[in-house]
C-alpha cells in the first residue's frame, strides 16, 4: 500500500537511487553519529549508499599544504576505486573539494590524465559524477516519503550553520551551490529557522588544535551570535564544524549542535537516537524532549 501511494505521488521516488559513498575520516573516524544518521536518513528516502571499498583519506588540509604529490595522488586513488556508472556521494565539504577539483584537473589536463592512468592502472572515467549529499534534495521530494511533514520538527528554533561549505575555490565556482538548502528543508519539516550573520564563517578546522585560542574566539562568536538571534540549537552540514563548535565554544551555557542528518532522520521517524546523542558534548536530549521531539 505504502509503495502504491509513493508511486502515485511521484514516479521518480519508486526507483531506488544508488550511490557510492565516500565517508572521509571526519565522518568515519570521529563523527560516527553523523554517519549513522546519514545512512538512516538515506535509507528512509529510498537511497542506497554503498561505502567506497578501501577508500583512503582525501589528504585533508595537510596534504596540499605541505606535499603536492601526496595531495594529488590521495584523491586520485579514491577516484580510481569508484565503480563505473555509479555517482560518488560525499558528505564532507572538504573531501568534496579535494576529490572534485582533482577530478576536474585530470579531465582538463592530458598529462595529468596519463599520470593517473599509469599510476592507478585504469582508464579515467570522464562521466564520473561526484556530488555532495545536499544534491539529493534536487533529486528526491521529501513529501513522497512522509505525511504531514510540516509538523515533524515542532517549531524547534534552529540556526543553520554552513561554515565554509558554500565557499568554493575559483575552479569550482560554477558547481552547484547549496545556499539555503538547510533552511528550505528544515522549514518544510516544521522547524523555525533562525537566520544569523555568522552562518558562513569558517569554524577554524585544524586551528582548533594548532592555534586553539584563535579557533575559540571565532567559534564562541558563532555560537553566541546564534544564541543572541534566538536559536535553541545550531545545525551543521559538516562533521568537522560540528566537532569544533562543540569543543571550542567557551560559553558556559552553550546550545546543542545537531548534525543536519540527525534532524532529517528524526523528522522521518528514526528511533535510534540513543546511538547518536551520547556522542554529543552538549547534550541535545533535554531540548528535544522539551520540544516534544523525543519521548523519554
Amino acid at each position: 500500500m505504502k509503495k502504491f501511494l509513493k508511486k502515485n505521488k511521484n514516479n521518480r521516488s519508486s526507483e531506488r537511487l544508488r550511490f557510492s559513498f565516500f565517508p572521509g575520516c571526519a565522518l568515519k573516524v570521529s563523527g560516527h553519529e553523523s554517519t549513522l544518521s546519514l545512512l538512516k536518513f538515506c535509507d528512509s528516502v529510498n537511497i542506497e549508499l554503498k561505502e567506497l571499498e578501501d577508500w583512503n583519506c582525501c589528504g585533508s588540509s595537510s596534504a596540499h599544504s605541505i606535499d603536492h604529490n601526496v595531495a594529488k595522488h590521495l584523491p586520485m586513488r579514491n577516484i580510481s576505486l569508484v565503480p563505473k556508472g555509479i555517482p560518488l556521494l560525499i558528505a564532507c565539504p572538504s573531501c568534496l573539494i579535494r576529490l572534485k577539483s582533482t577530478y576536474l584537473k585530470i579531465k582538463e589536463d592530458e598529462n595529468l590524465r596519463q599520470e593517473y592512468e599509469e599510476a592507478w592502472g585504469k582508464p579515467f572515467d570522464e562521466d564520473l559524477e561526484i556530488i555532495h549529499f545536499f544534491e539529493i534534495f534536487n533529486r528526491i521530494r521529501l513529501e513522497d516519503y512522509i505525511n504531514h511533514l510540516e509538523e515533524k520538527l515542532k517549531k524547534i528554533k534552529v540556526a543553520p550553520y554552513y561554515g565554509c561549505m558554500l565557499s568554493m575555490p575559483p575552479n569550482l565556482r560554477f558547481e552547484n551551490n547549496y545556499s539555503g538548502i538547510m533552511e528550505k528543508t528544515l522549514s518544510k519539516l516544521g522547524a523555525d529557522i533562525i537566520p544569523f550573520g555568522y552562518a558562513n564563517m569558517c569554524c577554524g578546522t585544524y586551528l582548533s588544535v594548532a592555534k586553539p585560542q584563535l579557533a575559540q574566539k571565532v567559534v564562541t562568536q558563532i555560537v553566541s551570535k546564534a544564541m543572541e538571534a534566538g536559536a535553541e540549537c545550531l545545525v551543521t552540514a559538516c562533521s568537522m564544524c560540528h566537532l569544533n563548535l562543540e569543543i571550542r565554544c567557551a560559553l558556559e551555557n552553550s546550545i546543542p549542535v545537531l548534525h543536519f542528518s540527525e534532524l532529517l532522520s528524526m523528522a522521518l521517524g528514526a528511533e535510534d537516537q540513543k546511538k547518536w546523542f551520547p556522542r554529543h558534548i552538549v547534550d541535545p536530549v533535554p531540548l528535544l524532549k522539551k520540544r516534544g521531539l523525543l519521548v523519554s
Binding site: S61, H64, I97, S167, M168, P169, M201, G204, T205
Partner: peptide, 13 residues
C-alpha cells in the same frame, strides 16, 4: 601558516 585554505577569500575575490 594561519591560512586554513577554506576559500572565503577566493570565493569573494
Amino acid at each position: 601558516w594561519i591560512c586554513v585554505g577554506y576559500n572565503t577569500c577566493s570565493s569573494y575575490c
